[in-house]
Amino acid sequence: MNEYENPWFHGLKWAYLLLVVLTLMAPVLYVMYISFNANGFGANEYVFTLEWYGLIFSDELLIGALRWTLMLAIVVTLVAVPMALLAAKYYKAADNKLFPVFLLLAPLFVPPDILGSALLVSFKNLNAVFIWIGDGLGTSMFDSWFRLSFLTATIGLIIYTIPYSFVVILITMGRYRKEQTEAARACGASGWRAFWDIEFPQIRAGVFSASAFTVILVFNEYTRTSLLKGGFDTFTTVLISQMLNTGMSPQSYAMSAMISFVAIAAIGGIIILTLIRAEALARIARGKAEPVMS
């Protein structure tokens, strides 16, 4: 903060920033608010209850959808985050950075419905081609490879989430000095060992953040999932069909609210934890010898 700046003006800017955050959060808070109303959405009377949260687990449609969503989230995270990590390392070492950057960030710019449609038609055609090859060879083993299924939904979601993981990991890697890897190599560690012992502990926070982010994105994604999934329902497809037909059930509000509670707690936890750790480190550093190089 500029020391000559009017503190009131500075405060005003902060107030504006928080107001924007609050406005963006308003729908979320509203859903939370509704989730505790015994009379559900749109009722004139508000009676606080936790009933709907209890009912989530007896709503088989919701629980079934949740199970699929969770599986998708886990598989996508397990594949996409390591891939983003590899891609980030490739990007760091690459001479020509334009190609990897373009390929890894372009999915951000392709709207969900367009990406979903393009992949849907590609998979359907690929499936037809595979069946045709199978027929030619007299085997049916290729028939189900690219039929719309868990696999196709997973591929679509990996493409959707990779850019976010890539950027998050790249940001944490920015602080890592490659001299440390070289020093580890000079100490006799193999390339893999140097990565695992030296680099990974320092970018762990980024990898975990990317994982958390990927899980949340998969949980909340509707368009790509609904276009590419097979016969199963996920959390968001259940919500949409409720919305467009009978209106969301109170359990769905409760479920949404619960997911956001968990997610906000996770992000809030990360923020607070890093804050505390940074403070603690700074205090130790201040207490001991003066650091000359970081």
Binding site: R177, E179, Q180, E182, A183, A184, I198, Q202, M293, S294
Partner: peptide
């Protein structure tokens, strides 16, 4: 190395 090479 010149610098930055200790494991922090």
């Amino acid at each position: 190395f010149q610098a930055y090479a200790l494991f922090p």
